[in-house]
């Protein structure tokens, strides 16, 4: 019989672990953690392959990949590669690696996948506008007490809580 997945770590213990990794990033590398930046850089990497001219002509894209610049030649990209490996190691150790889709009791798997993509798209757009996501802004900027990061963090929660009631069929 296949063994069941391990239960999740106590959230406060996981939080201390995460906090120490974040502190380690500040102390060693002088910067915090991130995620969406590396995804953006991957988009630019792909766009460079399709059309270098398009990247050069766009003021936003060219900051990442203009001319000879390699969007992947950055700390955050290596850190994010580590996130994938760390997630894989943890998931393997807890027997949680399997092809599956988690969804609420009142939504089909297919619809869940559509909403996952749409939600991811909104998050991606918002993260570029706000210059970072939950990792790079809320967590990292939260710990350094950056004013804008706290405001953005509160807005993320406000946006999600504000729509939660209307979208409850997706989840509960």
């Amino acid at each position: 019989m296949e063994k069941k997945p391990a239960s999740y770590m106590n959230p406060y213990v996981a939080g201390i672990g995460l906090g120490l990794v974040l502190l380690g990033a500040f102390v060693v590398s002088g910067r915090g953690l991130g995620a969406s930046g590396a995804i953006m850089r991957t988009v630019v990497k792909a766009e460079k392959i399709v059309s270098q001219e398009h990247v050069d002509a766009n003021a936003y894209l060219s900051t990442y990949g203009g001319g000879e610049r390699d969007p992947w030649d950055e700390w955050l990209v290596l850190e994010t590669l580590g996130v994938l490996v760390g997630g894989l190691l943890s998931g393997a150790g807890a027997r949680r690696i399997r092809w599956e889709t988690h969804h609420g009791p009142r939504i089909s798997r297919g619809k869940r996948l559509v909403f996952a993509a749409v939600g991811g798209g909104l998050f991606g757009y918002g993260a570029r506008l706000a210059r970072g996501c939950t990792s790079g802004i809320a967590l990292t900027g939260g710990a350094t007490l950056a004013v804008g990061s706290w405001i953005t963090m509160l807005c993320i929660f406000a946006g999600a809580y504000g729509l939660a009631w209307f979208l409850r069929r997706l989840w509960i």
Partner: peptide
Amino acid sequence: PGIVGGLIMGAGFIVGGYCPGT
């Protein structure tokens, strides 16, 4: 931009269930 971007991210979070890192 931080306020509007944050609200859009919040909407994305409840629609999609994930933030980029997770």
